[in-house]
């Protein structure tokens, strides 16, 4: 158990907040922007027709098919977003080399572990992003997501002894830290032990 988990014992968060926030079109601008960029990349040109047409189509999609807002309190931090690809590449190279070494040296006699990792995040977006990061960067693969108890169950690959198991746990915590840095709400970024609150969820302990 990490200190983060100890500290947040007894979190009584407001129930029922997960249901559905009002669908506000004005909150959907990141989606519209993404659709617009996608349109331009797929057409492969920046002629005025493509630019204007893409903007019109993106706005129409966002207005006609509104999605429930999943990122109510997410704040995008551009600096960390720019650093993220470099971090991903370094982490991916490291884990790929580790897995490849394991495949060549041990093969059938590989030792792995299934670990339970507590999360600080609570919202769907943060948990999904953390699960994605944890599967990409370190030597772990997310098997199960326990949404209510805020736990990830990860398969960790080179895990022969307690020291390696601890290192894999630390890698998942690092993945979550990167998610918090990039899209996390302000109060989580300031305090490294703070858990995300106010999304409902039981906040219980085992």
């Amino acid at each position: 158990m990490s200190p983060a988990d100890e500290q947040a014992h007894g979190t009584a968060s407001t129930p029922g907040a997960r249901g559905g926030p009002p669908r506000r079109t004005s909150r959907q601008w990141p989606l519209a922007l993404w659709l617009w960029v996608l349109w331009i990349v797929l057409w492969g040109s920046v002629s005025p027709v493509v630019l204007v047409g893409g903007a019109v189509v993106a706005l129409l999609v966002v207005v006609l098919f509104p999605l429930p807002s999943i990122a109510r309190r997410a704040r995008l931090h551009p600096l960390w977003l720019l650093l993220l690809p470099a971090h991903l590449l370094v982490g991916l190279v490291g884990s790929a080399v580790a897995v490849a070494l394991e495949a060549v040296r041990r093969g059938p006699r590989v030792r792995a572990a299934v670990l339970e990792v507590p999360l600080r995040s609570e919202s769907d977006l943060m948990i999904a992003a953390t699960a994605n990061m944890a599967s990409l960067t370190p030597g772990t693969l997310v098997l199960e997501i326990d949404r209510d108890r805020r736990r990830l169950y990860v398969h960790a690959l080179p895990a022969r002894d307690a020291r390696e198991v601890d290192r894999r746990r630390g890698e998942v915590a690092t993945a979550e830290r990167w998610v918090v840095r990039t899209i996390g709400p302000a109060e989580m970024r300031k305090d490294p032990n703070r858990r995300e609150r106010g999304y409902g969820g039981e906040g219980e302990r085992r």
Partner: peptide
């Protein structure tokens, strides 16, 4: 080919 079970093979696929 060399890993012993599905999830370790999945690791090889997802990483390397």
């Amino acid at each position: 080919v060399r890993f012993p079970d599905t999830v370790t093979r999945l690791q090889a696929a997802a990483k390397a």
